[in-house]
Simulated scan of single mutants.
Amino acid sequence: MKQNFILSLHPMTKLFFVLFVGISVFIIPHYGFAYAWFPVLTLLALLAGSEAFKEFISLTLKALVILLIIVFLMQLFFYPGENVLGEWWIFQWTEEGLLYGLSLTSKILAIGAAFILFFRVTEVKDFVKSLEDIGLPPMGAYVVLSTLTIIPEMKKQMNTIMEAQKTRGVETEGSLMVRAKAFIPTLTPLILSSIASTEERAITLESRAFSAPVKKTSLHKLTKGSADRILPIAFLIILILLIVWRVMS
């Protein structure tokens, strides 16, 4: 996966960037600043490679757009305010609701897109290893790893089960009702296979002395380059400058 500058950065450097984005949108509360982060993040995803860019755009559209629309409409119609801009039926929207909706959705978009980009350009195993390197116990690292990988693994198992259903002549495509009928019978084998997989992992970990009270070693090593030492300092300096500018303005 490490093919260019962005992908080759240390996971903690990428995480510092995500934190930098999240903190900066609260230091500079104007929604224009927060919305401006999205094209920047899109450009970074493009520089990371076509695959990362496609996944970034796809996940952003699937995970954030509907949420942003719902949040914006809720704030627009129900946020208390005095300057009424318009009304329809029993609803009315105010200037305060409009501004608060723009402010809230802009922050959600910036932070959400930053996290999506982070996991598109960072392998989970590298992220977990970086957490171990800064002192996270192996048990905690395993919990993080399991949490981050459980949904993709269950999705793979679901696809396998659905393909098996197709080979048996079960109709799995078509209307929503047809897909629902095909989905419900897959829940039992999916749950049972997940339980079996968990048991197999536990046996595998114990066979490798995972719970033994000794110092653990790893063949997987992460190294930091010059950019990984410079960028976190640069992010911190920029945040300090933003705070100073915010206080002085």
Rank of each mutant, 00 (worst) to 15 (best):
W37G: 02
K224M: 15
I203W: 04
Q157M: 13
G97Q: 08
S146K: 01
L61H: 07
L7W: 03
H10A: 06
Y79Q: 01
V244T: 03
L15P: 07
E96P: 10
L43M: 14
P152N: 02
F118Y: 13
H220Q: 05
R201L: 09
F78A: 00
M154E: 04
E123A: 15
A110G: 11
A114I: 14
I57G: 01
G22S: 09
I69L: 15
T172W: 05
M177T: 03
I27N: 06
Y142E: 01
T147D: 12
P80Y: 10
E96T: 02
M12I: 12
A63R: 12
N159G: 10
V170H: 08
S24D: 05
S226W: 14
S146H: 01
K2H: 10
Y100K: 15
L76D: 11
Y31E: 04
A52F: 04
L44D: 13
T42K: 11
M139L: 13
L59Y: 12
I28R: 12
G49N: 04
F16A: 15
I90L: 06
G135F: 06
I111T: 07
S50H: 14
G112V: 04
F5M: 15
L61D: 07
I108A: 00
A114R: 02
M154C: 11
T94I: 00
I6K: 05
E132L: 10
V244I: 14
H30E: 14
F56D: 03
F17A: 06
I203S: 05
I57R: 03
A196F: 10
I240R: 00
E200P: 08
I27L: 08
S106R: 12
A196T: 08
E87G: 14
I161E: 11
A202L: 10
A227M: 04
F33P: 05
I111F: 05
L136N: 03
I108S: 03
Y35A: 08
R246Q: 12
I240K: 08
F33M: 02
P39A: 12
P152Q: 05
R246Y: 09
S226Q: 06
A34L: 00
K181T: 02
I243Q: 00
V247H: 00
L76Y: 11
R168N: 03
P29V: 03
L99I: 13
L98R: 03
N159W: 07
P80F: 01
W93T: 06
T42I: 09
I238E: 08
